[in-house]
Write a protein that binds this DNA or RNA. Sequence first.
DNA 1: AGATCCTATGCAACTCAGTTGCAAAGTTTA
DNA 2: TAAACTTTGCAACTGAGTTGCATAGGATCT
Lengths: 140, 140
Amino acid sequence: MNKQTTDVEEILQKKGVKPTAVRMNVLNFLLDQEKAVSLKDIESVLSRMDRSSIFRTLKSFEEHKLIHSIDDGTGMTKYAVCAEGCNCELEDLHYHFYCISCEKTFCLMDHPISTIELPKNFKMIHANMVIKGLCDKCNK
Amino acid sequence: MNKQTTDVEEILQKKGVKPTAVRMNVLNFLLDQEKAVSLKDIESVLSRMDRSSIFRTLKSFEEHKLIHSIDDGTGMTKYAVCAEGCNCELEDLHYHFYCISCEKTFCLMDHPISTIELPKNFKMIHANMVIKGLCDKCNK
DNA sequence: AGATCCTATGCAACTCAGTTGCAAAGTTTA
DNA sequence: TAAACTTTGCAACTGAGTTGCATAGGATCT
């Protein structure tokens, strides 16, 4: 399941982040997920690592456009690995889906944000779009 | 500028909220705004009133669909009065705009959320949509 | 009116995610 | 190797939100 260590190391190098043990572990974990995860999620799995180290790691990943953060309204910021070739620009933005039943937060990569009409002279720079409802597994 | 006391009282009655001093003051303040405001904003204006009273008032207003809350990513929930006839249903949802310069959060009432394509069997129940950028006054 | 009951309010204390300062450990550079 | 810089772990703090509890304010009943 895990990417080879060398893969993770390579990814970090490419994005200009020095590959340390903490960073490689965190990235490895993030790559394994099919959903966006919180700092707490990571903390409870990588329990040997310190919260603030993971926190700083996430901040660093975000700055280097390796991951993006999602404010899904739960009070815990979620993080997900960016898609190949993502620059965290407008065209990379996508909707997120928060399932109120299983409480998972997903990136809807196949449904990019369409051009949204804004009032005159308003300029869009970023967006945090969260749709809440039931995911396919919970919608029965 | 302020609505007449009787107006505010009437609005509260209609929505099934007993009109008390705190509630009338809070609603009055909310109606005066052209932007969404935080608990702190209200607290600093209605300084004689207790934070938790205002907090509970907002929760109550929200339950009674008098106002809706917006998580604009600043870490402070914002509140705005619902439009006439709003039932806080899907069709009442709208985008919000957070200006990263003046730090105001607006409801984009004229730009309702278009039907968003979801993966198969996903069901939308609610949404928190925040576009971030520059508002007309700050976009120069 | 007075007694009773229920709701609203104010205060203080607490929760919890996120964040920061600092010293120790690890790494790179000279 | 020593000096310089970076990363990590720990502990303490911040700030929004939330809750418990006692008092105050209204409504209701007798």
